[in-house]
């Protein structure tokens, strides 16, 4: 049997070259299209600082005194670092009750309990549609937060977020 001892030689005719060019062009087009699609989907997050106010509703008597300016707050569910307390405003707790005579919901003070308004500063990343504190906590007005500080806990809605210009 005769052994094939000829070295390999790549021989391309004109037709093969045209074919290669077309295939490379199509592959390049697909890459360009997928790159453009992913570019449209992504938003570049920007690092900044956000100032927001959270309301601890109806804190039990005496516990609001435990909160101090400078306290670090932590989300009790997933342990996100929610920032540092800048100021504290303690008000009598108020809830809505139905007055059956006037058929109206009215504000009623809950004796002995406090509503505590905490202004907090936190590092965050912002995109066009969200503000993420500590890389993952989605901060929005109306959302209920569950928070712990040094020796106390509280829960209630975020009631304001300072808008960046």
């Amino acid at each position: 049997m005769e052994r094939n001892t000829h070295p390999f030689r790549l021989r391309l005719n004109l037709f093969d070259i045209i074919l290669l060019i077309v295939a490379v062009a199509v592959a390049g087009g697909l890459l360009w299209f997928s790159a453009r699609s992913s570019q449209n989907d992504q938003q570049t997050p920007t690092a900044s600082t956000v100032e927001y106010t959270v309301l601890f509703r109806r804190m039990t008597p005496g516990t609001s005194q435990l909160i101090q300016v400078g306290d670090s707050l932590v989300d009790t569910i997933k342990n996100y670092q929610l920032g540092t307390v800048l100021s504290i405003d303690i008000q009598p707790a108020v809830t809505q009750v139905l007055d059956q005579e006037s058929k109206t919901y009215v504000d009623a003070v809950v004796e002995g309990y406090d509503d505590v308004y905490l202004t907090v500063s936190a590092s965050c990343t912002q995109t066009d549609d969200s503000i993420l504190v500590d890389g993952g906590y989605d901060l929005r007005v109306g959302q209920t937060t569950y928070v712990r500080g040094p020796g106390y806990m509280g829960s209630g809605p975020v009631i304001s977020i300072e808008r960046g210009e």
């Binding site: 809505q96 139905l98 059956q100 058929k103 109206t104 919901y105 009215v106 504000d107």
Partner: peptide, 19 residues
């Protein structure tokens, strides 16, 4: 306003203070 049950057995859209 809020839709609520009243003691007279009716359901009404009643006013809510500061809402």
């Amino acid at each position: 306003t809020q839709l609520t049950s009243l003691m007279d057995g009716t359901i009404a859209d009643v006013p809510c203070e500061d809402r």
